[in-house]
């Protein structure tokens, strides 16, 4: 059963191409769409959840086309946006029951209890949501999303703004959802979380998927070790260093990253080579590759989108609502 399928999925905001000919096939798995802010993650989710019309291309959820079979699509999905929209003047139970009624499930009260139980909120269910912590509110939103037993759950930045413990808990719940047979489509810009919990990830940059695969497979594209070197000043002004036995990945701020088959041997070589070009090294470190390194390799420097265009931004906001 193919949960999500897109073909040439594209969205323009005026002249800005927010999502650029996306081809994805997602089966029963936890799929993570990774990328920096403004890379097209939310736009993709909005199109897949029938909240935004694609400019070009097609997408289908559980075999239903998002353009022509919108109601069917919405019966099979749940969408949790990043805003954390729960009614603070309602209790946890009322918040979930509200969605159970809107979905028109049988036995809304029982389903509500069940969903609250799964998200470990039963003992606080009758407190006003006002008193909930950020992590609890997020779990409450997951309970709302579970109440009609969807086939595909879309989570937009589910761990944004949560502390470490709350994040871990959210991800464990996401895992248990997948075990019950749900497909989870999650967007995040936290590479480490995606690395640990996603079955497969797609790295998106300027609306294009630049790398797609399981985290281990993506990391295997790099050599065995990653060497990060902090230098004095900004490294973006430096020209790309070519050093034998290593591959240059890119730089962020004042950190240069290289990948090497044998990091221990590469350390002195790198130090010599950089020293010869007059670069002063402050610190060197050796570690195993992470998705951050993969990202650096396929996308390049992670920087904020330059040349902020007020007009484009306003159009974008308007369309999003």
């Amino acid at each position: 059963m193919i949960a999500i399928e897109t073909h040439n999925l594209t969205r323009y905001y005026g002249a800005l191409r927010a999502v650029d000919h996306l081809d994805l096939t997602i089966e029963n798995e936890i799929f993570g769409l990774l990328g920096p802010n403004g890379s097209g993650k939310t736009t993709t989710v909005l199109m897949l959840t029938t909240l935004l019309r694609p400019s070009e291309g097609t997408a289908s959820i559980c075999g239903y086309d998002v353009l022509t079979k919108g109601t069917e699509v919405r019966k099979h999905i749940s969408y949790v946006p990043q805003d954390m929209a729960v009614d603070i003047k309602l209790t946890g139970r009322e918040n979930v029951l509200f969605y159970a009624d809107l979905y028109g499930v049988d036995n809304p009260k029982d389903r509500t209890d069940e969903a609250l139980g799964i998200m470990e909120l039963s003992d606080r269910a009758d407190d006003l949501t006002k008193t909930y912590s950020g992590g609890m509110r997020r779990r409450l939103e997951l309970a709302q999303a579970l109440v009609h037993e969807p086939d595909v759950v879309f989570l937009d930045e589910p761990t944004l703004g949560l502390d470490v413990a709350a994040r871990k808990k959210i991800w464990e719940h996401i895992r248990s959802l997948k075990k019950t047979g749900m497909t989870v489509f999650v967007t995040t810009h936290y590479m480490d979380e995606a690395d640990r919990y996603c079955d497969r990830v797609g790295i998106i940059s300027s609306g294009r998927i630049t790398a797609l695969g399981s985290p281990p497979a993506l990391k295997a594209r790099l050599m065995k070790d990653v060497v990060t070197i902090s230098v004095e000043g900004e490294c973006s002004s430096l020209q790309e260093p070519v050093i034998e036995g290593t591959e240059y990945l890119g730089c962020t701020g004042s950190d240069l990253s290289f990948t090497a088959e044998n990091g221990r041997e590469a350390l002195p070589l790198l130090a010599d080579a950089l020293g010869r070009s007059g670069i002063r090294i402050r610190q060197m470190s050796l570690r195993e590759p992470t998705l951050d390194d993969v990202f650096l390799q396929v996308v390049g420097q992670q920087e904020e989108t330059p040349g902020f265009n007020e007009q484009k931004f306003r159009i974008m906001l308007r369309r999003r609502r």
């Binding site: 909240l51 109601t71 919405r74 969408y79 949790v80 946006p81 929209a85 979905y103 609502r321």
Partner: peptide, 9 residues
């Protein structure tokens, strides 16, 4: 609103 719009009703 976005959450409501994603409902089948």
């Amino acid at each position: 609103m976005n959450k409501f719009l994603a409902l089948p009703a």
